[in-house]
């Protein structure tokens, strides 16, 4: 564990807290993609199966359970809460799951460290996490007025990715045999997807304006 990794995890946790806070306090999920949230829930389920058979640290297990619980809580609010679900932009959130899940699954079957069920699912979760933000980015591009909490949620997720890359660079420099090319390539792709968003986020922040993405 290094400082970059800890910062990354904290930004990740903070992003989820901001989203939950937005949903609970405003009773609205306007601007949030249910597709992205369900993909994240799937990512966590596939990746954290190791909760059942391996133990790394109390911190790790605690965070894994927290991510799982919060992901399902968000999905539950957006799907089933009487008030919240009415604010969901169903017509705008049209990204097809299959376009993301199928290629990731195929890739995980071909490119993995070992061909076992848990290993393929773990690899699948790494690939899927890299692209799971796409429905959210597409939804934001379609939305005229992006509220601050939604913009901050995505910015915090981007910060989490950024710190994880610093963490990998640090681990590459300090640990022997740290050659995690599957994680690196997926991670860099994932972070690059945020680059465009961050550009406009910074512009609007500087101008002290509400975030608006160009069509």
């Amino acid at each position: 564990m290094n400082l970059f990794r800890l910062c990354g995890d904290m930004f990740h946790l903070l992003s989820i807290m901001v989203l939950l806070l937005k949903i609970r306090a405003t009773r609205s999920c306007r601007g949030i993609s249910l597709k992205t949230q369900e993909l994240y829930a799937l990512v966590f389920v596939c990746r954290y199966l190791d909760l059942f058979y391996s133990f790394i640290s109390v911190y790790n297990s605690f965070m894994k359970v927290t991510f799982l619980a919060t992901a399902f809580s968000i999905v539950r609010y957006m799907r089933y809460d009487k008030v919240v679900k009415q604010t969901y932009d169903r017509e705008q959130d049209t990204f097809r799951y299959v376009f993301l899940i199928a290629p990731c699954l195929l890739l995980a079957l071909v490119l993995n460290h070992r061909f076992t069920l848990t290993e393929v699912l773990w690899t699948f979760s790494i690939y899927l996490e890299a692209v799971a933000i796409l429905p959210q980015l597409v939804l934001m591009q379609r939305t005229q007025n992006i509220d601050n909490l939604t913009a901050n949620y995505v910015a915090l997720l981007g910060a989490y990715r950024g710190f994880y890359i610093l963490n990998w660079i640090y681990r590459f420099a300090t640990e022997r045999h740290y050659r995690q090319w599957i994680v690196w390539i997926s991670g860099v792709i994932q972070t690059a997807l945020y680059a465009d968003f961050f550009f406009y986020y910074a512009l609007c922040w500087k101008a002290n304006k509400r975030l608006q993405l160009p069509a």
Binding site: H12, D50, N60, K64, F67, H113, H177, Y178, V183
Partner: peptide
């Protein structure tokens, strides 16, 4: 050990 190192992140 390689696997442990690979999976100690979230």
């Amino acid at each position: 050990n390689d696997e442990w190192q690979r999976k100690d992140e979230l």
